[in-house]
């Protein structure tokens, strides 16, 4: 990646990390309802994959992929307003976390049954093929969600129709409390591509350059009409499933091992190697922190949604 690309990556990873910290703090103060699903440890995967998209490409991220949202243009304010269920939120207060869509930004979020979104994202890719738009669909699933039958059905369709579709399997080692070893006999998730006759690749999900490069290749492969790819990014969920979860089932040594590969720190090192100065990095860190603080403060000034919203748009109006 160029220095300019690395700066964009670092800025978005910082926003994602700061946003997580802000939501965790609010959760601890009981100022937020529902779950807080932090992506700490996963920033290089969500940011690096999303950065490989071109203008007009489509993204179906998961609930943890805040970094991907920021890359595709969601602002910290928009995110904070939805997470804090305020008036004017993109879901009108009907749904939380990353469960939103913004067609202008080509972002289509998820339902909690994450595997269910794979066939839907594949349908979006079908629409691109039918309309010859030239756009590619990037969709995400986790090591846990990848077990769901609908993922298989979606990949069957995407592969037989040779659709412009890329599935990122973010393997963060745990599905809630269940380790990969208890989920699958073959821990290499990208091997599943073999069954569909499509390319599959595993990359270090804490290495922004490896993630960006693999995804860029898969996207251009798809755009050229060669069909889908599975990219497995290996990462570690450094927090519980959500903040209520003490995640005492994760061995301490495992967390320490992954902590040494912290994707935000690794990206900072890459930037220093490209000639960025410590003070440049510090100012980027401060900038991200203050942007998130400002967004949360702004969201907190807004009232709750109008109660009448509860009764609107059950059917499209």
């Amino acid at each position: 990646m160029t220095k300019a690309e690395l700066i964009v990556a670092y800025e978005n990873m910082l926003l994602a990390r700061e946003f997580d910290h802000a939501m965790i703090n609010l959760y601890r103060q009981s100022k937020i309802v529902g779950g807080v699903y932090a992506q700490i440890g996963n920033e290089a995967s969500s940011v690096g994959t999303a950065m490989a998209l071109q203008e007009g490409d489509i993204i179906f991220p998961m609930h943890r992929d805040n970094g991907a949202h920021f890359v595709r243009g969601m602002t910290p304010r928009e995110m904070a307003i939805n997470f804090l269920f305020r008036r004017g939120s993109i879901t009108r207060g009907t749904d939380g976390t990353g469960h939103f869509a913004d067609p202008e930004k080509k972002i289509y979020g998820n339902v909690s049954h994450l595997g269910a979104m794979v066939p839907v994202a594949v349908g979006a890719a079908l629409a691109q093929k039918l309309s010859k738009s030239g756009f590619v669909v990037l969709n995400y699933i986790g090591d846990g969600g990848a077990s769901v039958g609908e993922v298989h059905e979606g990949l069957m369709m995407a592969s037989v129709q040779q659709l412009p579709f890329v599935l990122v399997i973010e393997n963060n080692q745990y599905a809630y409390s269940t380790p990969v070893a208890a989920q699958t006999h073959n821990p290499r998730f990208s091997d599943r591509a073999i069954g569909y006759g499509i390319p599959g690749v595993t990359v270090d999900g804490t290495d922004i350059e490896a993630v960006f490069s693999a995804t860029s290749q898969a996207i251009e492969f798809a755009r050229a009409g060669n069909g889908p790819t599975i990219i497995e990014t290996t990462t570690m969920r450094m927090r519980g499933h959500a903040e209520h979860d003490p995640f005492d089932y994760v061995p301490k040594e495992l967390l320490e091992e992954w902590d040494r590969k912290d994707p935000v720190l690794r990206t900072a090192t890459l930037l220093l190697n490209k000639g960025a100065s410590e003070s440049e990095l510090t100012s980027m860190q401060q900038q991200a922190k203050s942007e998130i603080e400002e967004a949360v403060a702004y969201a907190n000034t807004l009232p709750a949604p109008d109660a009448a919203e509860a009764f609107k748009n059950v059917f499209f109006q």
């Binding site: 594949v122 979006a124 039958g149 059905e153 979606g154 369709m157």
Partner: peptide
């Protein structure tokens, strides 16, 4: 074949695909 699309035996897959395409202006 682009307007009458045969699928594998994937009821969830094909309904999901219909939903996904409908988000992009189609009426499947």
């Amino acid at each position: 074949k682009d307007r009458v699309i045969d699928t594998p035996i994937t009821e969830a897959g094909l309904v999901g695909a219909a939903i996904g395409a409908s988000l992009f202006g189609y009426r499947p």
